[in-house]
Design a protein around this nucleic acid. Structure first.
Lengths: 255, 255
DNA sequence: GTGGCTCGTTCGAATAGCGGGAACACATTT
DNA sequence: AAATGTGTTCCCGCTATTCGAACGAGCCAC
């Protein structure tokens, strides 16, 4: 079930990206460390690192290289170019202020959920989530909300390629159970995450749909299980969320 | 005054980065457009683009490629790894709330200033600044604050390599004038930007120094010229800023 | 002071693989 | 049905990448 290229990838670019990925794992590394860990010659590692430095991608500190703010520049560019971001940001901020919980805006890319913006409420829980973070769609509220509103064939492809890895013992890992669950989400219009991604954390997520009815974006409110229960979880928050996503959809259609 | 490699850069990586840079300029482009604009063969452009897509860097939408949230992931990683970010963020937020103006945290990299975090006040001016944005150090308050507190030889190198490009007609473009100006900043401990980067916008910036006395970070408060004048500009804001940077420096030393 | 260790850089040579162009498949248009 | 547009595939030639070894610069210990 691995990946089958089929075409001829540019291997030199792949090694460059391996260096970048390595520097994300190790934070900083010298030429020797890079060469050792990737199994390439020191001279090759040196040439790559210096090239990436000259291009502004890497920064050298003495004898070590680390990732530079080049990524920050491109990262914010990418976020600002998301058409939904500008429309969703103020509403996400509003929701965070109104609920005092953590609110996230999530988009789908390459079959996984990407957190593109988060707003803090006064009592926000601290999860592992972070702007840019990737999470399997089936593991959290916003992801399930997106998944439920994708074209049916797309859902199949994603489940096929990504599988149903568990994050906690509440994560839905059975395919037919997930299918039923998604059907419920479609009927209700929102998704609930009951400690399926992080133990002790629940969330409500609602999709932002385009004219075609598909969703590539969702918004979620996350908080501790003891606050998000009863009618708050099943009535109040869904109502708030659906109001917000509805407004965002309208704003998006008129821009 | 051009760049003299001196070593042998990896040209394949350079073309890959050219594609990425192109997609930042044009937002989205197909294989043919990429090949035409960069003067490479379509097959080469296709292979590069698909490689970058497989690595998660690019996303394809139909027949067009665009930059993916890969950059967002790496970008926030880079920011969170800045030791100063965690310490400065709460203070920047505080300052924005206290002054109701836009507050920026800026670091130096490759001889230019990089905005790594910004907090909005209720009356924030909207400038071209943006997280990740690069600005020549001599053009703005935070940049000048950093520049003034770098090792003397470093200052010379930066001015040599980067020059003194003007942003407005108030920008300091004379080298000896700038040197004197930096001396004043060192004496005062803070820098003032009087419409030197954006017409109608003034700012105050103060450095965050490490134990060695050098600064690689600064914080600034920016606002419209009609609000930032008189004692507000020369007394109140500098005092607030210096208080904040002082606290940040202490927190940094004890971590 | 001097040998040894580690770091990164440089050099030359060999071959892997990058780049280019033409032919291809496919869709949309005229 | 022909024409133009898209991206992809194939193969060949030659460049540019890769490697390994030799080199030079720091640094520490003895």
């Amino acid at each position: 079930m691995g990946s089958e290229p089929g075409y001829r990838p540019v291997e030199t670019v792949e090694t460059a990206l391996e260096i970048v990925a390595l520097l994300k794992r190790r934070d900083r590394a010298g030429v020797t460390a890079i060469a050792d860990e990737l199994g390439i010659a020191k001279s090759t590692a040196s040439r790559h690192a210096r090239t990436l430095e000259d291009q502004g991608v890497l920064v050298r500190e003495g004898e070590a290289y680390r990732l530079g703010t080049w990524f920050l520049d491109y990262g914010t560019y990418v976020r600002n170019r998301q058409p939904v971001f500008e429309a969703a940001k103020p509403k996400v901020d509003e929701l965070a202020a109104a609920t005092d919980e953590k609110v996230w805006c999530v988009i789908e890319e390459h079959g996984v959920g990407v957190h593109i913006y988060g707003a803090e409420g006064r009592h926000s829980v601290r999860t592992h989530a972070r702007v840019g973070r990737r999470t399997p769609l089936h593991q959290f509220a916003a992801g399930k909300a997106i998944l439920a509103h994708l074209p049916d064939e797309r859902i199949g492809t994603i489940l096929e390629e990504r599988g149903l890895e568990a994050a906690t013992d509440e994560t839905i890992t059975d395919r037919s159970e997930l299918r039923e669950h998604l059907e419920t989400i479609r009927e209700r219009g929102y998704a609930i995450n009951r400690e399926e991604s992080v133990r002790g954390v629940r969330a409500v997520g609602a999709p932002i749909r385009s004219d075609s009815g598909d969703a590539v974006t969702a918004i979620s409110v996350a908080g501790p299980a003891n606050r998000l229960r009863g009618e708050v979880l099943t009535e109040e928050l869904p109502a708030l969320l659906l109001g917000a996503t509805n407004e965002i959809e309208v704003n998006l259609a008129h821009s």
